[in-house]
């Protein structure tokens, strides 16, 4: 039995369907990410699991118990908020003790657990400070400690790293993953950043306009996208509509090929039997450091994006410039068929 069972959940705001009839199982101990653009319904689902929003239809079960209409304070889940939601008038320690206090944990025990939790995020020196005296990263950690100290079955994280700068965000990604593994708590993480989702998650749930597009491991959603949206949202994809694919590639569905799986070589040069090639003209060649991004105008009449990793210095390998005739080559097994 899954830890959280969501069935046919729906929620509208006015006449906008924010969440449109979704079902999802979340397993105990997994790190699952709800990924999607803003307005795709991912945060609304999280808020319904937390109990901040009531659903219009459907049900949510936690550990077999129906929690669909329970208030937030009666659910064994805790939330880390996007802007941290630390209480500005309370010290760091008082913030972390808050949930223990509402559970009537005795004062000494409360202080002990809070200090442990603060130590686990390495912020012992801040216990007496007020939230406005902390940096963004420190506030983030305290918000995490405040939720973890309650040892919830499930921790809900609503874009918790969104406000941090890139370097700090990457550090926190590693740390969050470690905390999740060590504590064995189920994490439901909301983000719009596909790289962040892939880096941390056991499974990714891709949302689009209130619906689930695909659920799978990072590899699955990247390599076997089930919809055009998924193919385009995770990384970059060259998508051939079903007509083009049928005509030129002999495929029966829409197909997608990743830019990094395509290599360029001079027209007429040899390719392997297991490979496909098409010819075209380089429209643009953009050097972006680690990679060079080529935009080709192919003879299919579709544009193709190709990413070449710059393993050599510029000009020391076969690089092309705008206007060159080239042949784009990929292995047939790298084609992803998109059923929908």
């Amino acid at each position: 039995m899954a830890l959280i069972e969501i069935r046919d959940l729906a929620k509208s705001f006015g006449n906008v369907k924010a969440v449109d009839d979704i079902s999802l199982d979340i397993e105990s101990g997994e790190f699952i990410t709800l990924l999607g653009p803003s307005g795709s319904g991912k945060t609304t689902v999280l808020r319904m699991i937390a109990g901040f929003e009531d659903c219009d239809a459907g049900s949510i079960k936690l550990n077999g118990e129906d929690i669909t209409h329970l208030p937030p304070f009666d659910r064994d889940v805790n939330t880390v908020f996007q802007d941290y939601a630390l209480f500005p008038h309370m010290s760091v320690q008082e913030n972390v003790e808050y949930g223990l206090r509402t559970r009537k944990v005795p004062k000494a025990e409360r202080a002990k657990q809070a200090l442990e939790a603060i130590a686990s995020v390495k912020l012992e020196e801040t216990v007496n400070r007020l939230p406005h005296q902390l940096s963004g990263g420190q506030r983030q950690r305290i918000a995490l400690a405040r939720a973890l100290v309650l040892r919830p079955r499930v921790l809900l994280l609503d874009e918790p790293l969104g406000a941090l700068d890139r370097q700090l965000r990457e550090e926190m990604q590693v740390e969050l993953k470690k905390i999740q593994r060590d504590a064995g708590i189920t994490f439901v993480f909301v983000t719009h950043d596909q790289e962040e989702a892939m880096r941390m998650s056991d499974r990714i749930v891709v949302f689009n306009s209130g619906r689930i597009e695909q659920v799978g491991t990072p590899e699955q959603v990247y390599e076997e996208p089930r919809t055009n949206f998924v193919a385009g949202f995770l990384g970059t994809a060259n998508i051939f509509s079903v007509d083009v694919a049928r005509k030129f590639l002999g495929a029966t569905t829409t197909v997608s090929i990743r830019p990094e799986r395509i290599r360029l070589q001079a027209p007429g040069t040899k390719i392997d039997k297991s490979e496909t090639s098409i010819t075209g003209t380089v429209q643009e060649a953009a050097f972006v450091g680690a990679n060079t991004i080529y935009i080709l105008e192919t003879d299919f009449g579709v544009k193709l994006t190709v990413r070449k990793t710059n393993t050599e210095l510029l000009g020391q390998d076969n690089s092309f410039v705008a206007g060159d005739q080239v042949m784009a080559v990929w292995r047939n097994s790298h084609i992803a068929q998109i059923p929908v």
Partner: peptide, 23 residues
Amino acid sequence: IPPNLFDASSDMGAKGFTTVYRV
């Protein structure tokens, strides 16, 4: 008062009156 503070308080087990006098 940011709405999140009300959510956070009830998330951590506080009922309405507790939120009113603590937050």
